[in-house]
Write a protein that binds this DNA or RNA. Structure first.
Lengths: 343, 343
DNA sequence: TTATTTCACACAACCGGTTGCTCAGCTCGT
DNA sequence: ACGAGCTGAGCAACCGGTTGTGTGAAATAA
């Protein structure tokens, strides 16, 4: 019948002293005599006493909880980010509340609501690709819950974020292809509303311009990132009069779908058409014909860094209320071309 | 300066009524007059009042929090399970606290400790492959925190668990191979301490016996599931005097490593040696030479079912204390062979 | 009219810790 | 011997809700 957990009051009663004395004794407060301190601590271990974090959190208005919302953890890219987040949070004794939006704006909103009610200390969010309304983020701002966005950033002002600086990687990719003698370079981009898509496109256009290669508009197609979208985008390129001799894909999954389609069309991968992708997922190592190169975006590091920023915000938040203009962290992590096949 | 969240007390003061009245008014308690109820509710919405879940949880000893611990979410198998868990939990307004053990026993213990202190209502755990000591789980039992284990089950008595019933899938696999004319069937198993390994082995031996095919001991090798382990296990089989003409692999990742090695040894995949794996991960669809078939373990459903059991436990836990012998849920979900290549 | 019920709300305890303030008793200096 | 200073510990408020018990006034019944 020793069911209920022992509380600080139990200890106090057994020792005929007051709650507060026990509390202070347990935290080795100097104002408690050594003898009492020892007695309390011994009884505490005997009774397997463990402080109820719920009560502490309630009192201290601090929960050591970070809410993480992202589209899906089944993508290696995101699961790596989560690992990066977890490793930093873990060290500082924070725990992760996880929610997948499944690229559904309504679901994203509900998760935000739930986490807000759970009174998370802060949030790390990568928005759903369908999210166009940002009320729920504004709501968090009103509630003084800091957010650091990662990878998929909303189009808002005055936010903290970290993402990949895709331009550098894209430039490397184009240069790499040109050095190999490719001229008809195409891009399978993502949905236009994603900043990540805009950045890729801009990087692509700039790199082409710098190399003085003309870029016909039909060489840029876009996919909604579903399998069907990827296939149809690929078909568009394959059916072009002047078929591209190189394709840069939005990410590895797009590239894999594209390569599969290309194979069906008897295209020799990385020979007739050379493929380059973003993300550099490990899975590709198991493919017979992976993209020739991929642009590494260092998701693990992105997760780490995002968490560091958030924790920093959390620890310095009291001062923030005094500052008129808080400082917004906007970080772009350089990306980097990784050549998989040197052939 | 409207910084602090509005509380029930704020509302009470502004309306010159008591806290309790406000509380009851908000929950539409019948003993509060309609007029007062309306006034309270209106002011509440005006002030953007939202109850502090922390306080409620504290009072009710219920947090709507489920702790999930698994080796790694970067494996598609586990991330699918998490999705299954989340979808059920989400419907009942539970939130997920996530921790990855990284197959490290110490880390697993620390995560358990943290989650216990967070006073999760219950836990869903898939143990690390290195975990041999179960103290931390016993500790949870003492704390009346119910656990449902999934997929990787500890070797303990009186626990709730759900896992794949591998024997049926294994039998299908062996029969499938035999029907195709294979006789030298080998198994690359996982570490011996995992029940999942024992089950695979047993299923394999039984199926072979039933088909009256002799099984020389060297046809069963085991890997620690690292890439190196997979490679070395594969090498053992390839160097056998009587090389197997079919290999059943512990899971898709093992199979992919094995296939890669086999290719290097100029083996024609699914021709010289036919591969079958467990898990049926989607990634394999992108391979040129995936295993010919794979045993689907329905991870999403496993996650769903595990969560249903846990939630059921949570809702009926009060009665449990009266029962002398609680009922332990031990569920084995049938697995099923999925043929990828009908060739 | 008086007794009784009903209504509408207030009071206060409680959940399990933390913490500012108070205070008794002892030591020590003068 | 007396006040100052220090030590060790207790009291009570607090965090933000929920809930059992009381209570005065109005409504109804006798």
């Amino acid at each position: 019948m020793e069911s209920r957990k022992t509380t600080i009051t139990d200890i106090a009663k057994k020792l005929n002293i007051s709650k507060s004395t026990v509390s202070r004794a347990l935290s080795n407060h100097a104002s408690i005599g050594l003898r009492t301190r020892m007695r309390v601590q011994q009884l505490a271990t005997e009774l397997d006493y463990e402080p109820d974090q719920t009560a502490i959190h309630f009192k201290q208005r601090k929960k050591f909880l970070i809410g993480v919302i992202l589209p899906s953890i089944s993508l290696e890219f995101f699961s790596s980010i989560v690992s990066g987040i977890e490793d930093i949070a873990y060290k500082k004794n924070y725990t992760l509340l996880l929610g997948q939006s499944r690229d559904d704006e309504e679901r994203e909103k509900k998760i935000v609501e739930t986490m807000k009610n759970h009174r998370v200390d802060g949030m790390l969010i990568s928005i759903s690709k369908n999210t166009t309304n940002y009320e729920h983020f504004e709501l968090l701002r009103k509630n003084k819950i800091p957010i650091v966005f990662f990878d998929r950033i909303p189009n808002m002002n005055n936010i903290h974020y970290i993402a990949s600086q895709l331009e550098s990687g894209m430039k490397e990719a184009v240069n790499f292809l040109i050095k190999k003698g490719h001229k008809q370079i195409a891009l399978i981009n993502g949905p236009a509303n994603l900043p990540a898509s805009k950045e890729r496109l801009q990087g692509f256009e700039n790199a082409m311009k710098k190399n003085k290669i003309k870029l016909p508009p039909e060489m840029v197609v876009s996919s909604d990132l579903t399998k069907e979208g990827n296939i149809s985008a690929t078909q568009q390129l394959l059916h072009l009069k002047r078929r591209p001799d190189a394709i840069i894909a939005f990410n590895d999954y797009v590239a894999m779908d594209a390569i599969q389609q290309a194979k069906k069309a008897k295209v020799r991968i990385n020979k007739d058409i050379c493929f380059i992708s973003f993300a550099n997922e490990a899975i590709c190592n198991y493919m017979d014909h992976p993209p020739m190169a991929s642009i590494e975006q260092f998701p693990y590091q992105q997760g780490e860094k995002a968490t560091e920023i958030l924790l920093d915000l959390l620890e310095n938040s009291p001062s923030e209320s005094q500052e008129q203009e808080p400082h917004y962290h906007n970080i772009l992590l350089p990306s980097q071309l990784v050549v998989r096949i040197s052939k």
